[in-house]
Write a protein that binds this DNA or RNA. Structure first.
Lengths: 123, 123
DNA sequence: CCGAATCCTACTGGATACTG
DNA sequence: CAGTATCCAGTAGGATTCGG
């Protein structure tokens, strides 16, 4: 396999990745890939997220068309979030990325350890 | 293809992706995939990056073992950065991601436009 | 139940100046 | 050339409060 081509990276691409791969997005997508969820279901599924950050994440993902928001006008209101067809196409690239992370995590931790001791001993 | 499995996302994975896919890392990796580079070569190749951010990015990538730093003790010193074998394995996942971004960029821009007008008209 | 609004803090990243 | 050091503004994000 040839790996010597040039990657295509420009501002719009970077911005898109930032919007879709940010801190909480993967967790949200993970949940919504399984089933539609209400707001507080997501909060419980991702305990570390605050309400503010979750709201921001959901809005951003909705704006980029990877999730949908549906308001059911009951009392009190119910809001359901679900993944879109476009959102589903994001899954495979993310899977590839996570597979890479899992596979090479040991090597990376070794590299970190080596780097850190190099820094320590040079002080 | 079955897409109903559960992704594996935990804190170490997220942290790793943050370290390796941050704002400037892709540009740096892109350059170093082609050839080893000196510090100021990288600055010129990525005009928008500041020296401080570039230094931080290089240190982080080095710590995670995806690039190497070599100091040539001349006067003045020359420092060369090159990609490692581990770093090369990162290329394919990133390519998949960028391919996704390119392919779906039009749909995403349409989604953004629709969302933004939805917001405007509801004001 | 699902958020919006406010306040506040901590970190990021830019500009600038200096060093081996 | 390849950084380090310092200062400083902007922002992300947590805690808390309030509203439909």
């Amino acid at each position: 396999m040839d790996t010597e081509g040039r990657l295509h990276i420009d501002a719009p691409h970077r911005e898109l990745l930032d919007q879709v791969l940010d801190k909480w997005s993967l967790g949200v997508l993970n949940e919504l890939c399984e089933r539609p969820c209400r707001f507080n279901e997501l909060r419980r599924a991702i305990p570390a997220v605050t309400q503010k950050s979750l709201t921001a994440t959901l809005r951003r993902l909705e704006r980029n068309g990877v999730i949908e928001r549906e308001v059911v006008s009951t009392r009190p209101v119910a809001v359901s979030y679900r993944i879109t067809p476009l959102g589903k196409t994001l899954r495979q690239p993310v899977d590839v990325l996570l597979a890479w992370a899992s596979k090479h995590m040991p090597a990376i931790e070794r590299a970190r350890g080596a780097f850190d001791t190099r820094m320590e001993t040079s002080l």
